[in-house]
Design a protein around this nucleic acid. Structure first.
Lengths: 206, 206, 206, 206
DNA sequence: AATGAATGAGTGTTCATTCAT
DNA sequence: AATGAATGAACACTCATTCAT
């Protein structure tokens, strides 16, 4: 991803070419402050943190938050997108600086760090609130190609099996978007098999 | 573990041979109903679910819950222990019925299922509430030997590397007791390396 | 007072000559323990203290309290009568040991001590609960003659005006049975006039 | 005190000349309504009356009460101060309209009326809650000079003994700030002696 | 007769959300 | 557009009272 969408726009999927409608400077300042504050509060206290904690940290009134993010889910989604973008953008950067396996490993660690701040989001994501419907696909749309590139490079270098599924691997680390227990598509089984493969690696059988 | 402690007694580690102190039958019925109801509600709605949801499902009054579990954390901990026991007890059972690698794989899947119901417990566990202090060690005390036996059997059969650390592996699947983001002991790094090993398994390098 | 009613009987105005129906010894023990405990708890925490505080101190179960005192007001009334009796009985005792004015002064101080433990009963008394209807008259029936005797003796000795109204005086100190603010019978005014008389005592007018 | 502080400001000692900090009109309306409602409810049902009774009568939501009076004690204290101010302010007014003894008597009756609404506050005052620490001294600071002036005028007119202690007299009527039973400074004794003096007034000894 | 477990209405309090300023 | 006061539903928790043991 070269520069990513401007996630500063509240609750809106950016369409690249639409000319910006005039957003007043003070409004933009409020939005930025809210996104920053919410990101910090969410990782510190979870996405159920009291709204006032966020507005206080952002230095705005409660009404301002609701003006820009009428639903709590709008705020959560906006923060989520912003952080997804930042993480996905790290993949090509690492690929440019490191050998394939090294880049792969580093990015997976970076990704794990991203996931670590998302504890507690899982419940929201599966709450059935349609406001979150677009998030899993956004997550996938950003991350799958990012990891795909890294895996391809490693495979081309003969450093990884070529049939590895990036999406499965992301879920193995994240378990964010689909809880392990409910899925029936065999994801968990495949990932556990992968771990077991890892355990076997280096034995006389490998 | 041969048959597991009877976790029906609230917040108490059962000593096998001690004759039951007279727990009135109705009280025991309430405790059992509450633990069962709480288990279901917790996995459906998280550990912050309204108390009344639990009491309604258990068919008891609110006061009954508070009599037996004065703090919410007491209930959470009791449910946790009960489910840990049930899962740990599955390990020897599977070992008796299946080949080593099969038993290992099945149990890891069973364990993953256990973890899946624990989404949302992570925050509670790291809340600093001393009521939860004993839980991580209980978790480890039950699970580490359970998985250790399975790994040993697999290693003896030449089906797994013998240096695999059961505790690391449990955390790799669970990420329950220590969030990924905060740990500095390299756990995440090792587990990601293990996944990458799994990816490499079967390539020309293995 | 020579023997007074046995206030150990719950919620019942003793009729002097009725032969005691057989009260089982253990029941009587419970009643005594409850009255003693309630007296202590009421002065420490007011008459709205939690029931369990009383049963715990008495060493009986909650059911036992309700067997003997089906309404909370029954318990309050029984404690009240018991303490009224004890205080009223002190009047003749003091009269036998001291000079008239000394006995009068000492008993009024004793009475003030009694009142001091009744803070908070006022609200209950005026709650409209018919269970308390008999209490003010009981209070008056016991105390008015007790103080009347003391005043008479003092008057006969030329140590007090002979027209003093014992009931007014009791209320002046107590303000228990009728709150100052609501009465329109001039009681408060008379008592304040009395205080002012006291202030004038020894001025050029006296 | 010439006209009394505006107690409409929550839990704050008004400084006469300070220009009002911008208190929004609606907030002030809420505060006033709450203080008025609480005053009525407290005298009717005691200071432990349900919060909802107060908010309902004030016509505001529960949150509004908690915004302005985060602790129940804040509300109690504010009501107390407001009523103390009103009563103390009556003293100079009465002095301006009546002869000294008449003014004294009327104000004491007014004060007795004030006390009558304070039944049940005693327990709160001695609960040890530091929120009430300042109340007794506030009570004394307002009332002692108020009564002192009245007594001085009466003494100057030769209508009262000049050594009367205003504070003792206030406590004689009030018994609010220090319960009768516990004090060891002889207050109760002195007041009872005063009453007895009043009784003696006009006997052959006076 | 005594016990103490169960009930559930009642209450304080919080906090998301709306809306007057 | 921003503020922050008001609202009131929702929730945890207590405790008087009942009733199974």
């Amino acid at each position: 991803m070269n520069d990513g969408p401007t996630t500063g726009e509240a609750a809106e999927e950016a369409t690249e070419e639409r000319p910006r409608q005039p957003v007043r400077a003070d409004a933009q300042r409020s939005i930025d402050a809210l996104l920053a504050a919410a990101g910090e509060v969410f990782s510190a206290s979870g996405v159920d943190a009291p709204v006032r904690q966020i507005t206080a940290r952002a230095g705005v009134g409660a009404g301002t938050l609701y003006r820009h993010f009428p639903q709590r889910s709008d705020l959560i989604a906006a923060v989520f997108r912003k952080e997804v973008d930042a993480c996905a953008a790290a993949a090509p950067a690492l690929a440019a600086e490191h050998e394939p396996v090294e880049a792969l490993t580093r990015w997976l660690q970076r990704f794990a760090g991203f996931i670590a701040t998302k504890r507690g989001l899982s419940a929201a994501l599966h709450s059935g609130d349609p406001a979150y419907d677009s998030l899993p696909s956004y997550f996938q749309r950003r991350f799958e190609p990012a990891l795909g590139e890294l895996l391809d490079s490693a495979a081309k270098a003969g450093e990884a099996r070529s049939d590895a599924n990036p999406w499965d691997l992301l879920r193995a680390i994240g378990n964010l978007t689909v809880p392990v227990g409910d899925d029936n598509d065999g994801h968990t089984q495949r990932m556990i098999a992968l771990l077991v493969d890892g355990l076997r690696y280096g034995t006389s059988n490998s």
